[in-house]
Nucleic acid binder design. Structure first.
Lengths: 273, 273
DNA sequence: CGATTCCTTGAAGGTTGTCAACGTTGGTGG
DNA sequence: CCACCAACGTTGACAACCTTCAAGGAATCG
């Protein structure tokens, strides 16, 4: 297990993809996934040290499979602010978002001694020449887009403790699919500064929220070990429906945003959907 | 002009795409774009009223081309919070992110009487059967992912006035490519509440930032008209390098984030990029 | 011209950032 | 083994940014 980019239980597309994709396209996506998997299988495994730069805007990027270790995509500003745009866990494909671009838009840095397999950029045209592989790349990109949008919405509308809960739950779900969670516990090789860079918070405030979740007996985060103690309340927090404060029930009742149309009032048509 | 989803000046891929994609893939992408364009051309144009729901998580979605009018993708929470995940302007393709999914993950709402052309979901397998079309869909998705990530990073690390500047500049650039900007001015059919939902701010604070940009003579935003008065300073704000405060120069020198590795110190290899 | 939605402004309070200091951990070399 | 150092974690006090609450004015629409 974990020796392969896709978990074994489905011997094909991740069960998640199987459940989420259009049934008509399933066969095609599964074929595309097999083709990409094959291409990776032919590539030798290399070991990248911590802090190695895997992708940078200065050079066209290859496509990588992260077998072991973690990686982060980072954006930095001139004044020292920085954000972690995406977190890659073992089993992820790195570089899909830059596969079609001449230059990647930001930097990917290795976070632990990592095992990496690489498909050279030169091989891309041939791979994309098969429609199933191209469709599968589109699937990977759609997944990436959805993760990015979820993160943006968290940061836009969630409070600090909800953001942290959402992130920890999200990683829990992703790692569980890759069989990297044992007994509600997983390894998180990020510093609190880096967690802050991902959630739009400062180290200091991340630290407070970590303490809060621990005191509330929801999640223990010590050093690099995450231990989930109350999955139900974690889910509530991460979906924006829970709070550690008791009076939150009251505030939950009054809507905060009134300017947005309520859906399904003026329906467009029946079949346009 | 504007009668077509892609601007006329390149009679092919948008100049932006031409500049950004891998040269090897350009021909393929251009072909895919032509194929998609043809599919849209066969579809009749329909008119959707304001507040119509174009896509909702309850039904599989089709693929739409927005010829006139605007649309927004919206996510809402039980307690009334809401976020505008994406803003669609004339010329955009709507529904790419849900093209491969059985169910869209959120709702798309029309914002002005809009002209829309629709490719039925049933036609997707045939379209994706051509590798160039599938690759072009992947390109569209990669663009969408990058927009989502940029927005997330704005909200994570920018202050309110910078976020507003970034949004106004981004729309300016996008509309300019579609020839919808006349003399530094364009139409923005969003309420301040909706701008807030996009930027993670309240109406009240959006209003203050609008006033600030007006008082600083950077941008006028009155009713639904945006008038850019100082493009240079707008770009500075939107890139996080400017501020209306003079003492910002000092604070710009001290880094705020120290926990992130500096790139290019430990290079991985030469050819892995 | 009512009625609704949107914009605008002020005052007060809360969440989060800033600053500063200290404790802890882990690695390195004497 | 200990001293040292650098990176990371932790905490408190204070300030800033942004939100909440409230109310009135302007615009838009039927």
């Amino acid at each position: 297990m974990m020796d392969d980019i896709f978990p074994a239980e489905t011997d094909g597309l991740e069960s998640r993809a199987r459940a989420l994709c259009r049934p008509v396209l399933f066969e095609d996506l599964a074929r595309g996934e097999r083709e990409l998997r094959l291409a990776f299988r032919e590539a030798p495994t290399r070991i990248a040290p911590t802090k190695a730069v895997l992708i940078s805007p200065e050079h066209p990027s290859n496509l990588h499979a992260l077998r072991r270790g973690w990686a982060c995509r980072i954006r930095e500003w001139a004044d020292g602010r920085s954000a972690i745009t995406e977190i890659y866990v073992p089993g992820d494909v790195i570089g899909a978002e830059a596969a079609l671009r001449d230059r990647p838009s930001d930097t990917v840095v290795i976070h632990q001694p990592a095992h990496i397999q690489t498909i050279e950029a030169a091989a891309l045209p041939r791979l994309l020449g098969r429609s199933s592989t191209a469709t599968y790349l589109a699937w990977l990109l759609a997944e990436g887009q959805q993760r990015a949008e979820r993160r943006a919405d968290w940061i836009a509308r969630f409070e600090a403790h909800e953001r942290l809960a959402a992130m920890l739950l999200d990683l829990y779900e992703r790692l569980r699919r890759r069989e990297l969670v044992t007994h509600y516990s997983y390894n998180l090789p990020l510093t609190q500064q880096q967690i802050g860079d991902h959630l739009g918070l400062t180290v200091v405030h991340v630290n407070r929220m970590v303490r809060l979740l621990r005191e509330e007996k929801i999640v223990n985060l010590d050093r690099q070990v995450v231990m989930i103690r109350d999955l139900r309340r974690l889910r509530l927090l991460a979906s924006g429906e829970g709070s550690s404060e008791p009076e939150a029930v009251a505030s939950r009742l009054k809507p905060r945003s009134l300017g947005v149309v309520e859906p399904a009032r003026t329906r467009f048509e029946k079949d346009e959907i």
